[in-house]
Simulated scan of single mutants.
Amino acid sequence: MSKPSIILASTSTTRKHQLNCLGIPFQAIAPTCDETPLIGEFAPDTALRLAKNKAYSLKAKHKNSIIIGADQVALLNGQQLGKPLTIDNAKIMLANMSEQSIEFYSALCVLHSDFDHCQTHIDLTCVTMRTLTYQQIEHYLDKEPDAIYCAGAAKSEGLGAALIERIDSCDPNALLGLPIFKLVEFLNNEGIDII
């Protein structure tokens, strides 16, 4: 059997950049996935369900492939924060996050399409935000308009780092969208050596 192809079930430029850093060839393909949280669903369950749905949505059309699905959900005071998708929603989210601690659940699914072998992981990152003024929030969103496509509008890989006071995580990559430490382990389990 030929070596499996690697597919990232995502159009996220940040996730593509993260996977590029591992130096392995892959394709990034848009998954088909309704990202609406289910009523009463816990944040880590939402993140994992969506990561799996993204991977499985590409399974039928991509034989002999390792498909990587990922999703992230932010949780503030027991309420899930999705992607704001508009500047106005982002302003409200960020104002509510000021001086608060937010939990980011970054879920990973690595699926071998031929064998239906699925490995999953959820990484928890706790982020404490600085005191944010309305002017700072507006300036941030002017400089980082793509933040509206990030969970909680927190684009930490860019200017969003200035919003953050502290990050607690086992894998600093997870906050960006892909828990790389676990991804390397899962790829190794599928016979794909990174180094």
Rank of each mutant, 00 (worst) to 15 (best):
S65I: 01
A74K: 05
A95D: 09
S156M: 11
L178G: 04
P37D: 02
C118A: 12
Q27G: 00
L163F: 01
D171Y: 13
I194T: 11
A51N: 02
L48C: 07
K182G: 00
L48Q: 14
K182P: 02
H112N: 15
F42T: 10
L111I: 06
A162H: 14
A30W: 06
V127F: 06
I29P: 04
H17Q: 15
K182R: 15
I148A: 06
T32Q: 14
C33S: 11
E41N: 07
I7H: 05
L163M: 13
E144V: 11
Q136S: 11
H17R: 15
F26M: 05
I102K: 07
Q100I: 05
T11V: 11
L132V: 08
L178F: 11
A70D: 01
L8R: 05
L178N: 05
L108Q: 04
S2K: 15
F104K: 01
L175H: 01
R49G: 04
D142P: 00
L187I: 06
A162R: 13
K59N: 05
L187Q: 06
V184K: 10
C33N: 03
N89E: 12
A74S: 13
A74R: 05
L38C: 10
L58N: 03
L124K: 13
H112L: 06
S169E: 02
P179K: 10
I195S: 11
D146N: 13
I102M: 08
A60S: 14
L176I: 04
T46N: 13
I92S: 08
V184M: 10
A174S: 12
S10Q: 10
G40A: 10
K143S: 13
T36W: 02
R15Q: 07
T14D: 02
I137W: 08
N189E: 12
C126T: 15
K61H: 13
G23K: 08
D45M: 11
A47N: 04
I39D: 11
E190R: 06
A70N: 09
A74E: 05
V127C: 03
L183H: 07
T14I: 12
Q80W: 06
A161V: 12
L50H: 06
I66K: 03
I122F: 03
L8H: 04
L141Q: 03
Y134F: 12
A95Q: 15
P31C: 09
Q18C: 05
T13N: 10
R166S: 12
L176A: 12
K52R: 15
T14K: 07
A30E: 15
I102T: 09
I167G: 00
T11Y: 02
H121R: 05
S10A: 11
I66G: 00
T32W: 06
D171K: 09
D114G: 02
G152H: 13
D71Y: 07
T133V: 08
S5L: 06
D123P: 00
A147S: 14
N64E: 01
P84Y: 04
P44E: 11
I39G: 00
F181R: 12
I195H: 12
D146W: 10
P31L: 07
A151S: 14
Y140A: 01
R166I: 00
G23E: 10
A55R: 02
L50W: 01
H117T: 12
E99D: 15
L176S: 09
L183M: 09
K182H: 11
C21V: 01
F104T: 01
F115E: 12
